[in-house]
């Protein structure tokens, strides 16, 4: 890449150099200021600066969002009290009750449930794709998985609401099928693509020699997969799981339509519940600007943000370990 740039600049370089030598222009001063000798170096310098600027946009956005969330979230927590806010069991925004324990527990329970269902299916699918399936079958399944990743979350929610919720209602004889279980099933399906993709990549990266050695020692194909390939790819699989957690905990649109959206503690799988994300989404329209209610919604955002930061830190640790393998 760099070499190409050099080649492209070569024809222009001498001419421009002469010009700037004749009269001490702004370009010359610029060169002197930054200790650059040739015009090529100036171009290099400017392109570097452009790259830096582009990189900085991302950093600036993260910084801005972090700062904004903390600035708008912390005062409400301070006013409500950390313990009352985090461990209060009643949320009733318009009446001034701001306990987010139901949302926190629901988000944790929902994510755990989705992982419990999604990870076995995802990892086994990845094993199948990487180690067992004939190339053609694998190609079909792989494109189906990418398609699954491309479906907008509101469509998951709609299908869940029209099909899954009535099905759960009938299957378990409930008054209403919109509950934690419905949200878990939708989330489990939604996190499948990221789990499958990352786990499959990790499994493919397992050196062939490991498996060949195992087969040579008399292990069957399946024994080799579970005793050799999977353990060798374990940090990659762990990364997949953490990615799944991140996706599940941040989802809002799909589950707002199937979870019932009532701020109950998640007592059972059939309780109508509200998640951290959906709590923000469903009340932001109504909370008056400047009220404690609205600030408390930002505080929920801050809590969610901290959860996701934590997940990212864990993810980085896993990726680092993986490089160390």
């Amino acid at each position: 890449m760099q070499e190409e740039n050099v080649m492209a600049e070569l024809p222009h370089a001498p001419g421009q150099g002469e010009q700037s030598g004749d009269r001490p222009s702004a370009l010359a001063r610029f060169k002197a200021r930054f200790g650059l000798r040739t015009t090529r170096e100036v171009v290099e310098f400017l392109v570097h600066a452009l790259f830096f600027l582009c990189g900085f946009v991302a950093v600036a956005c993260v910084l801005f969002i972090s700062v904004y969330l903390v600035v708008s979230g912390v005062p409400a927590i301070a006013q409500i009290g950390v313990a009352d806010f985090l461990f209060g069991a009643t949320w009733n925004g318009s009446q001034g009750q701001f306990g987010i324990l139901p949302f926190v527990l629901t988000s944790l329970a929902g994510t755990a449930g989705a992982i419990l269902i999604g990870v076995p299916i995802g990892v086994l699918t990845a094993l199948f794709l990487a180690k067992v399936a004939p190339a053609r079958v694998a190609a079909v399944i792989r494109s189906a998985v990418s398609l699954l990743a491309g479906i907008p979350s509101v469509v998951y929610g709609l299908v869940g609401m029209m099909v899954l919720v009535p099905a759960i209602q009938r299957a378990f004889g409930l008054a209403s099928g919109a509950c934690l279980l419905a949200a878990i099933v939708v989330l489990a399906i939604m996190i499948l693509p990221s789990i499958i993709n990352v786990a499959e990549t990790a499994l493919r990266a397992v050196p062939k020699e490991y498996e060949e050695a195992s087969l040579a020692l008399g292990a069957t194909h399946i024994e080799t997969i579970f005793r050799v390939s999977l353990p060798a790819a374990r940090s990659g699989v762990a990364t997949a799981v953490v990615l799944g957690v991140g996706r599940a905990i941040g989802e809002a649109m799909a589950i707002i339509m199937v979870s019932g959206n009532v701020s109950n503690l998640p007592g059972s799988l059939f309780t109508s519940v509200r998640f951290l994300t959906t709590a923000i989404a469903s009340e932001m329209n109504y909370a008056p600007v400047g009220s404690l209610w609205r600030d408390a919604l930002f505080s929920i955002g801050l809590v969610l943000f901290l959860f996701i930061m934590l997940i990212n830190v864990i993810l980085n640790v896993f990726i680092k370990n993986r490089k160390g393998d």
Binding site: A175, S176, A178, I256, G260, N261, V262, S272, R274, A281, S282
Partner: peptide, 9 residues
């Protein structure tokens, strides 16, 4: 006092 099963948006 309402004990909703679903709160829709």
């Amino acid at each position: 006092q309402c004990d909703y099963d679903q709160e829709l948006t």
